[in-house]
């Protein structure tokens, strides 16, 4: 199973990459929404995208809207990963088509728990 991590911070991508690789996932990385869309076009095996909200260029919110507007990606699950903790932000992300939402800072266990909620990891 392949996971795409989208974040402009290499440090944050590294943290998530280690968590996901340890859990047995193949990991692909992109630094903004546009690059992530190109990854989705190139790699049809991506099952899940973890996407940061705030990025230069195409941000996470615009990326989610773009993915949900493309029927080819309707089975791809999307999880917003962001430091912005307001409930309005969560609602906006979910309304745009995100399947899950996790706040920074997170623990390894919190990330894995979200993957269980999405049915990507067994309970």
């Amino acid at each position: 199973m392949a996971v795409l991590i989208v974040d402009d911070s290499r440090a944050m991508r590294s943290l998530l990459r280690h968590i996901l690789k340890d859990a047995g996932f193949a990991v692909i990385e992109a630094s903004d929404g546009q690059e992530a869309l190109e990854c989705l076009q190139r790699c049809r095996e991506i099952d899940l995208v973890l996407v940061d909200w705030n990025m230069p260029g195409m941000d996470g919110y615009a990326f989610i809207r773009a993915v949900r507007a493309a029927p080819a990606y309707h089975e791809v699950r999307l999880m917003m990963v962001t430091a912005e903790a307001e409930i309005e932000q969560v609602s906006r992300a979910l309304a745009a088509g995100a399947d899950e939402y996790i706040m920074k800072p997170f623990t390894r266990d919190a990330v894995l728990e979200k993957l269980k909620l999405l049915g990507i990891l067994p309970h």
Partner: peptide
């Protein structure tokens, strides 16, 4: 954050890590 040794970190990686932590502080305070 990079799961590496401090000596292996480049200046860019160090600045990226501090930037991300600062952004996280700001995002949560927001």
């Amino acid at each position: 954050m990079f799961k590496a040794t401090p000596a292996a970190m480049t200046e860019t990686e160090v600045q990226d890590a501090i930037g991300e932590l600062t952004h996280m502080l700001g995002g949560n305070l927001k």
